[in-house]
Design a protein around this nucleic acid. Structure first.
Lengths: 215, 215
DNA sequence: GTCTATAAAGTGATAGAC
DNA sequence: GTCTATCACTTTATAGAC
């Protein structure tokens, strides 16, 4: 390999590293700022400061504020879709829905900002991710509804409406992220401990699994 | 009564009527705009247009954008507090929690905008209503937790954690307002019918009441 | 790939005539 | 109590030197 080519590859590799690292820094900062201030309340200046970069660099990596925002929303959506794996692999509701609750609660704890950004996006009428709702989410939902209906037909749980069960699963688990500030305030101003997160997860699992007649 | 006094009273009465009517128009428009665009995304111009008033008049009735926003948040909070009456008057969980779910679901249907404004306010760290969380909501929560614990002690329901039951009640009922757009999209793009709202309410009641061992 | 300076547009709020 | 015109400020986005 000629020197010039090797040097070029190294340079290119370094540039790629810098790009990936800066994009990650920007996305993490953006997720937090969008969650805490909303899209309209967030400023590129604030995101830049939190990422430790000059504001102009944000526009170098993401052409517009909306493009940056879109990436943040897509990220949390993909994380949630991955959590469905445990759902599908299960043989019955205790295992499947129990694992799904655990996975969603874990995401609420590890990605509270992304959850809030998604919630705000939906509350505002999903101006940016309406296509996801109509395609990916719709297909996902119908697939899981069929799975739950099969468990009902097999007598593994009571005949509840699968759609409203899914809504309840989303609502209860995401509540611990989206309303985390309210929960923290009612917890004496302190974040939930490991033990409290475990108790919350077990409470949700217990009520829902018994509620659908699986226990 | 002298003519001048009578006329003055009438004039004063008319002015009061105009004030009350305009304040109501502004508050309704503001609730909708804050819900759909967020505090930062909402503009006084947009609220004024929706209320059918010149922008300057908004500042005549509400000194600042934040003062107007604060009133919107307080409104939904008081509506929710009133819904607790059914909770307290009950003799056991089936009656009390069942009525509370029905009341909260009804509010989600009739006041979806207010619910979203509250959700966004909490998600952003409750910058405007933190004092309510620490006083009124905290007292309310502890009172209801005591009531639920009494029902547990009396053997009227299973020994679940009262706090997480309350969170689940808030999460599930408010989800139908806050994520109404997502639910509507998954309903073929059409709002829930009377029948579907009733089915949703019954599903929530059934799963939770059975889940806490009250059925 | 980085950063300063600035352009272009929009915002909350107010003055002042009616 | 109403409404037009405008001020003072902030924002997104970009130009252009380095």
């Amino acid at each position: 390999m000629p020197d010039t080519a090797r040097i070029s590859r190294i340079r290119s590799g370094r540039r790629t590293d810098i790009r990936q690292q800066n994009e990650r820094l920007i996305l993490e900062a953006a997720e937090k700022v969008f969650a805490e201030a909303g899209f309209g309340g967030a400023t590129m200046q604030l995101i830049a400061d939190m990422a430790g970069l000059p504001k102009a660099n944000l526009h170098y990596y993401f052409p517009t504020k909306e493009a940056l925002y879109r990436r943040v929303v897509q990220n949390i959506f993909e994380i949630w879709l991955d959590a469905a794996a445990s759902f599908d692999a299960a043989e019955g509701p205790i295992e499947g829905i129990g694992a799904y609750i655990e996975a969603k609660m874990d995401i609420s704890r590890r990605h509270p900002h992304g959850s809030k950004v998604w919630a705000a996006e939906v509350m505002h009428g999903a101006p940016v991710i309406q296509d996801y709702l109509e395609t990916t989410l719709r297909d996902w939902t119908e697939g899981r509804m069929g799975l739950i209906q099969r468990w009902i037909d097999e007598g593994k749980m009571a005949p509840i409406d699968p759609r409203h069960l899914l809504y309840m699963l989303w609502a209860t688990t995401q509540h611990y992220a989206d309303f985390g500030h309210q929960i923290e305030t009612l917890n004496g101003g302190k974040p939930l401990t490991d033990k409290q997160w475990h108790e919350a997860t077990e409470s949700v699992k217990q009520i829902i699994l018994r509620g659908i007649g699986a226990l």
